[in-house]
């Protein structure tokens, strides 16, 4: 009954109504997603270092492995071998649980993203809403993570995290509403299928720009790395996280970057759509890498925004623009021809 290559087989198993088959398939799919996240986190770490180095007239890692590809592994081993220091005045429970939970949350959201017409864990009717609701947990968890270390810099960073939330969340949701208007629903598969002849990046460029900017803020990427502001707050909320937790923090960073690029690709760049020379999953991952490249380029060229400027930027520019985007979308594509 299952035919084709393993990916197709997995897809068919996921979509089959049979309970046992789908439970086994979901477990296999979870392992596949874990592998994808592991590999891409690792490669993003290397890729980001290389791209940044090239922009800065450096070589980046070259010594460990071919083109320094094993450098991050060496760093990881070093971090894991170090002593884990928990500050005396830290709230131990939150300190130890928040970083793994954040990572688990991000991985779970990646798990919910459809990778191809068949490769998806579940086809949620309100997929986008579920994903962005889960994403908005992160700032409060980061608040707890930072606040629980008992470090003043982490505390400032934690407060910033909450203030940031109110500046970008509204425009983000409004853009998603426009997307839902176009795709006739919040289902991620429908959103991808609705982009069949023209991707949403072409149909609503304004919405894409707003979405890209707010996703940068969501992922704490520069110019919105206000929480981690290294020249002000040393490392922000993970100033006091050492060794294994720091490694987890790096993993978290890259998982969120992967998550952000996947979401941008799915919602605006047509997800798995593409010529049939490559399997749909490959198209989605290629698009994600391209988006990640742009995220890194933004990181390396811009300066950090100030907190109050971000608030003003969010409410004075992004919010009205996202409303305009919604109105244009409604008039042109729903009421129009």
């Amino acid at each position: 009954m299952l035919t084709g290559n393993p990916l197709d087989m997995l897809g068919q198993a996921l979509q089959s109504g049979n309970l046992t088959t789908s439970v086994i398939a979901v477990i296999a799919y979870a392992i596949l997603i874990a592998i994808i996240i592991g590999v891409f986190d690792y490669l993003f770490g290397w890729f980001e270092r290389k791209v940044i180095a090239r922009v800065q007239l450096r070589h980046g890692p070259t010594y460990v492995g071919k083109y320094g590809i094993l450098q991050n592994l060496a760093d990881l081993i070093k971090l894991l071998a170090k002593e884990n220091v928990i500050p005396a005045n830290a709230d131990r429970i939150f300190f130890m649980t928040m970083m793994p939970s954040l990572l688990a949350l991000s991985i779970f959201i990646v798990f919910l993203i459809p990778f191809s017409p068949t490769l998806q864990a579940t086809n949620l009717g309100l997929g986008v809403l579920v994903i962005f609701t889960l994403l908005s947990f992160a700032p409060s968890m980061i608040f707890l993570a930072g606040h629980s270390t008992g470090n003043k810099f982490a505390d400032i960073s934690a407060q910033r995290s909450v203030i940031m939330l109110i500046s970008y969340e509204l425009p983000l949701i409004l853009v998603l509403v426009a997307v839902a208007v176009m795709a006739n629903g919040f289902n991620l598969s429908n959103i991808v299928n609705a982009q069949s002849p023209w991707y949403f990046i072409i149909l609503m460029p304004l919405g894409f720009v707003i979405f890209f900017i707010t996703m940068l803020a969501e992922m704490e990427r520069p110019p919105f790395d206000i929480r981690e502001a290294d020249s002000e707050l040393i490392a922000g909320w993970f100033t006091d996280y050492s060794s294994p937790y720091y490694a987890l923090g790096l993993f978290l960073d890259y998982t969120r970057m992967l998550l952000g690029s996947l979401l941008i690709s799915v919602i605006f760049l047509g997800g798995w759509l593409g010529p049939a020379i490559l399997p749909p999953v490959a198209w989605l991952l290629i698009k994600a890498v391209v988006v990640a490249f742009f995220i890194v380029i933004v990181r390396v060229t811009t300066v950090r925004m100030r907190l109050n400027n971000l608030l003003r930027f969010g409410w004075i520019y992004l919010l009205p623009l996202s409303l305009i985007n919604l109105v244009i979308t409604y008039i042109v594509f729903i009421k129009g021809p």
Binding site: Q56, L57, P222, S231, R299, V300, T301, V303, R304, M305
Partner: peptide
């Protein structure tokens, strides 16, 4: 200066070279 306003060492490396 570029570093302190949140540049990720790009202007720094260029200026240093």
């Amino acid at each position: 200066l570029a570093n302190d306003v949140g540049q990720l060492f790009t202007i720094f490396m260029w200026a240093f070279s």
